[in-house]
Design a binder for these strands. Structure first.
Lengths: 340, 340
DNA sequence: TTGTACGCGTTATCAG
DNA sequence: CTGATAACGCGTACAA
């Protein structure tokens, strides 16, 4: 019943403080008493009360993961579950708990309100939009925080993948295969990742001596439906290849191409982004840029823990690698030769 | 800086107690002082410290959502994000926080350990397997808890959909359309939902005067790949229709059918389960059983809150409705007539 | 190495 | 209606 330090103390004939020391791995305890105390803790199933600990120490082992919950489309993207999985696993290993906060419009508990309640030691912020306004008050209050996805605020640390470089790589791959009219279906322009991928696309096109053509650029919202709609628009301008900023949109695009009676990659080649589970099973299997949201989550958490340990350490930026996974949807050099 | 009751008290010239009363909407405060105090709270941005509150009151406004995190396949199913969305939204509205706990093998913090730390007022348990062992210690400790998905333990409340009835409905729909050899791709047999859907399938087959045929039953694991593999096996026994226990598996099954040079629904009709976003965009659009994980999450949370408010109230079971959404993949009566 | 004593910010029980 | 005051369970100087 009474699972308190006091209780264990009485049971073993030592003081609360000693039990507390054992619990907190304080070296200043004789191994004899430590053993005795630990045994009592074990058989009583004692666990320190987190509220009391938090109150006394001013610290907590809870972090908040802020996920954009507004777009139904976003939540149904496997990206976020994987991110969460990475975060939760790493947090558990570090003895931390994860509080989930959907940063949805109209949510009662604003983020900085949560920060002020003292439940949370820091924030993992999966920014939904560029320089998200939610981020500012936290940054100002010097709350330990790590953004997942880049942000311009110089005060905040982030971990991201090289979206621009990856977009360029994907586009380059198509250009090198000989495609002449490479289009793109971008993500929503408020999302930093989407912008960066689009920039990479444009950079590749221009580096190839072409001019970016607005008719070959469509802005989707990462949903499958928008990929389909985008492809429908783009097909009017006869692209022979398309770089799609997410695999879900790519799935929609594939559907639309097939529905239009065209073949992939013979008539239109496709490269996606994410390498979600489906990608390998699409018809044809999707060439795509692989990123590892789970690892991003883990890395972000690690970074956050460092920041919590030393709040004055300078902001860090970590860029995680991506990988071009070549499958059938982009065709091959050989196909191209045969085409010509 | 000093965001405490004391601080606000000094500022307004009242005692801590009065401020506390205002914060907690205690009616025994004159409206004059209440207004003054509230104003101070507002401009100071005061929020009660949750640790202190938890310690003093013995209550918390945090609940834990336990999600099976072990199967990568499960996490990438849109079911869980939607469930979480529902939970988080409802929790926020009720002034509760959600702690995410992936019940993964080898996780450091076991569930009942968390229960003993006093951080959490109750558990939302998305049982991964039937009579999950994680559930027992909680039930014994009379920790407020609601299972999402049925469980046999008579002590625990749950919310679920009528999986058996839905499975029967889906199968019946195919049988009534005239299909003779209706197969099924089931979910993993440790998952209650999977069992129930399979039972529904069997019941429908037998009620139709047929005998369930093991050659027409494949056990998948809810993943797209397993749907594809399952369909490959089933095709050897020439089914003319198949009820697939999840849309993701159905996607794999569709791929396999097409790859085998067969047509849907002419050669093999397909009905799925879930009505995920993709379902409507599949080729052909997928007939499926729609369930609403978001609503399940919301309902479960509401139930849990009732349980927390009155821990001795008897366990409740809530069954949420599903809906058969007819699209092209199952064919129609008319198609069937033409076939004959 | 161990114990004492105080404080963390709230709630709750009393008086007033 | 309001204000003292004692818990709540723990961390942490400080003293022994």
């Amino acid at each position: 019943m009474a699972r308190t330090l006091e209780h264990i103390a009485e049971l073993t004939g030592v003081s609360r403080s000693t039990v507390s020391r054992v619990v907190n791995d304080d070296p200043h305890v004789s191994s004899a008493t430590r053993a005795r105390v630990q045994e009592a803790i074990e058989i009583e199933g004692y666990r320190p009360n987190l509220s009391a600990r938090g109150l006394a120490s001013g610290r907590t082992n809870v972090i908040a993961a802020v996920i954009p919950g507004g777009f139904d489309t976003m939540l149904s993207d496997p990206y976020f579950p994987n991110l969460l999985q990475g975060i939760a696993t790493a947090a558990d290993a570090a003895d931390y708990f994860v509080m989930l906060s959907l940063a949805e419009a109209g949510f009662r508990h604003s983020i900085d309100e949560i920060a002020r309640q003292g439940v949370v030691a820091g924030f993992l912020f999966s920014a939904g939009q560029i320089d998200d306004p939610l981020l500012q008050p936290l940054a100002s209050a010097k709350t330990p925080m790590v953004s997942i996805g880049r942000t311009d605020d110089p005060r905040v640390s982030y971990v991201d993948v090289d979206n621009k470089g990856s977009g360029r790589q994907a586009t380059n791959h198509l250009l090198r295969l000989g495609y002449q009219r490479v289009a793109t279906i971008a993500g929503p322009s408020f999302a930093p990742a989407a912008c960066d991928r689009l920039e990479g696309y444009t950079a590749a096109i221009e580096a190839f001596g072409q001019q970016a053509d607005d008719n070959l650029i469509y802005e989707g919202d990462f949903s499958e439906a928008s990929g389909q709609a985008g492809m429908r628009m783009l097909l009017e301008h006869q692209p022979d290849a398309v770089f799609v900023a997410s695999d879900r949109m790519a799935a929609g695009a594939l559907n639309e191409i097939i529905a239009a009676g065209l073949r992939v990659p013979e008539d239109v080649a496709v490269v996606g982004f994410d390498d979600i589970e489906r990608a390998a099973h699409m018809e044809p299997p999707l060439t795509t840029i692989r990123q590892r949201p789970q690892q991003m989550g883990k890395t972000a958490l690690t970074l956050l823990l460092e920041l919590i340990a030393d709040p004055d350490s300078p902001p860090q930026r970590i860029i995680l690698p991506t990988e071009l996974v070549v499958r059938a949807s982009c065709g091959s050099l050989q196909d191209q030769k045969e085409r010509q």
